[in-house]
Deep mutational scan, measured.
Amino acid sequence: DAPDEFRDPLMDTLMTDPVRLPSGTIMDRSIILRHLLNSPTDPFNRQTLTESMLEPVPELKEQIQAWMR
């Protein structure tokens, strides 16, 4: 099983494109984008959230890719 820090906190699946929300939570980009289609909010604190506020986490993405090899 993947380490917890590699798993999306909402869907508990392996992240492939991790992004940091303004709240500091790291999620998979595809999952948070799907959530934003229904509700333009951070799913953990209900603060306003837009796609432009998502910050890529390239170092975590590299760690996940290395773990998958």
Score class of each variant (00 low, 15 high):
67 W>I: 06
62 E>F: 11
5 E>C: 15
18 P>N: 01
49 L>K: 01
60 L>V: 05
48 T>Y: 15
61 K>Y: 11
9 P>K: 07
36 L>Q: 00
15 M>R: 01
5 E>D: 10
64 I>L: 06
60 L>N: 00
54 L>W: 04
10 L>Y: 10
7 R>T: 08
42 D>T: 01
51 E>M: 10
2 A>N: 05
11 M>C: 15
52 S>L: 11
20 R>P: 00
23 S>W: 05
59 E>H: 12
48 T>C: 13
11 M>I: 07
14 L>S: 02
57 V>T: 05
6 F>Q: 03
3 P>R: 07
21 L>I: 04
21 L>P: 00
56 P>S: 12
61 K>E: 06
10 L>H: 06
4 D>P: 15
7 R>A: 03
58 P>W: 09
62 E>M: 12
21 L>D: 01
31 I>S: 13
29 R>P: 02
1 D>Q: 14
61 K>L: 13
48 T>A: 14
69 R>M: 13
24 G>W: 04
38 N>Y: 14
7 R>G: 03
18 P>W: 05
48 T>P: 15
11 M>E: 13
46 R>N: 15
27 M>W: 04
5 E>T: 10
68 M>L: 15
33 L>A: 08
26 I>V: 11
56 P>F: 08
2 A>W: 13
35 H>T: 03
55 E>A: 09
25 T>G: 06
55 E>Q: 12
43 P>Y: 03
66 A>G: 09
47 Q>P: 03
34 R>V: 09
55 E>P: 01
45 N>K: 05
62 E>Y: 12
24 G>S: 04
35 H>A: 06
36 L>R: 00
47 Q>W: 09
30 S>Q: 13
8 D>G: 02
66 A>W: 09
1 D>F: 14
26 I>A: 01
30 S>C: 13
6 F>D: 02
26 I>H: 03
44 F>Q: 04
29 R>G: 02
18 P>Y: 02
31 I>H: 08
45 N>Q: 06
49 L>S: 01
14 L>N: 02
20 R>G: 01
41 T>F: 14
41 T>A: 07
52 S>I: 09
2 A>C: 15
14 L>Y: 05
45 N>V: 06
17 D>M: 04
9 P>W: 06
8 D>T: 03
60 L>F: 06
46 R>C: 15
8 D>C: 10
24 G>E: 02
8 D>H: 04
62 E>G: 09
44 F>H: 04
57 V>P: 03
25 T>H: 13
42 D>E: 06
37 L>H: 11
15 M>E: 01
5 E>Q: 13
66 A>R: 13
48 T>E: 13
20 R>W: 05
64 I>W: 02
54 L>I: 07
4 D>W: 14
44 F>P: 01
35 H>K: 04
23 S>P: 01
39 S>N: 11
42 D>G: 03
61 K>P: 01
1 D>N: 14
66 A>M: 15
60 L>M: 08
18 P>K: 02
59 E>D: 12
36 L>H: 02
32 I>E: 01
67 W>T: 05
39 S>V: 08
62 E>K: 14
55 E>S: 10
41 T>K: 07
59 E>K: 12
41 T>Y: 14
49 L>M: 08
4 D>E: 14
2 A>K: 05
37 L>I: 12
35 H>P: 00
60 L>W: 03
17 D>A: 15
13 T>L: 08
23 S>Q: 04
10 L>D: 01
16 T>A: 10
14 L>Q: 03
38 N>M: 15
56 P>N: 10
40 P>F: 09
3 P>D: 03
25 T>S: 09
3 P>H: 05
60 L>P: 00
42 D>Y: 04
17 D>R: 03
27 M>A: 05
28 D>A: 02
69 R>E: 15
66 A>Q: 14
50 T>F: 12
68 M>G: 07
23 S>M: 05
65 Q>K: 11
35 H>L: 12
27 M>Q: 02
5 E>H: 15
61 K>F: 10
45 N>H: 06
30 S>M: 12
27 M>R: 02
14 L>T: 06
69 R>N: 14
16 T>F: 11
35 H>D: 01
27 M>F: 06
45 N>T: 15
33 L>H: 06
57 V>A: 08
34 R>H: 11
66 A>E: 15
31 I>M: 07
16 T>Q: 12
23 S>N: 07
36 L>I: 10
14 L>C: 08
13 T>S: 10
14 L>D: 02
30 S>D: 11
56 P>A: 11
49 L>I: 08
66 A>I: 11
44 F>A: 03
59 E>M: 11
40 P>V: 07
37 L>N: 11
54 L>F: 07
11 M>H: 10
43 P>I: 03
64 I>Q: 00
15 M>I: 08
13 T>Q: 08
15 M>N: 02
40 P>A: 12
60 L>S: 00
4 D>A: 15
38 N>F: 14
48 T>I: 13
68 M>W: 14
12 D>R: 15
43 P>V: 03
54 L>Q: 00
20 R>F: 04
61 K>A: 10
61 K>R: 14
30 S>V: 12
10 L>M: 11
6 F>H: 03
57 V>G: 03
32 I>W: 00
41 T>R: 08
61 K>W: 10
22 P>L: 04
21 L>G: 01
20 R>K: 10
31 I>T: 12
25 T>E: 08
28 D>Q: 07
57 V>E: 08
33 L>P: 01
19 V>W: 06
57 V>R: 04
54 L>K: 00
8 D>K: 06
54 L>R: 01
12 D>H: 15
21 L>S: 00
44 F>T: 05
59 E>C: 10
6 F>S: 02
64 I>P: 00
35 H>Q: 06
10 L>R: 04
29 R>F: 07
7 R>W: 10
53 M>P: 01
58 P>I: 09
63 Q>Y: 08
38 N>V: 14
6 F>N: 01
52 S>Q: 12
64 I>C: 07
27 M>D: 00
9 P>F: 05
49 L>W: 03
63 Q>L: 14
60 L>Y: 02
57 V>H: 07
60 L>C: 07
56 P>Y: 08
15 M>Q: 01
53 M>I: 05
49 L>G: 00
21 L>N: 01
50 T>P: 02
11 M>N: 11
20 R>H: 04
69 R>G: 13
1 D>P: 12
55 E>W: 07
36 L>N: 00
36 L>D: 00
35 H>Y: 11
58 P>A: 09
38 N>Q: 13
28 D>E: 11
45 N>S: 14
61 K>S: 08
53 M>W: 06
42 D>H: 03
51 E>L: 11
51 E>R: 08
24 G>Y: 03
44 F>Y: 07
18 P>D: 01
47 Q>M: 12
12 D>Y: 14
31 I>F: 05
39 S>D: 13
62 E>C: 12
58 P>S: 09
62 E>P: 00
43 P>F: 04
59 E>N: 09
52 S>G: 12
21 L>Y: 01
20 R>D: 01
49 L>V: 07
58 P>Y: 09
48 T>K: 13
23 S>E: 03
46 R>I: 06
40 P>I: 06
4 D>M: 15
18 P>R: 02
14 L>G: 01
37 L>P: 00
25 T>P: 07
19 V>I: 06
59 E>V: 09
52 S>F: 11
48 T>V: 13
19 V>M: 09
13 T>C: 15
34 R>T: 11
25 T>L: 13
29 R>C: 07
10 L>Q: 05
31 I>E: 04
23 S>R: 03
13 T>I: 12
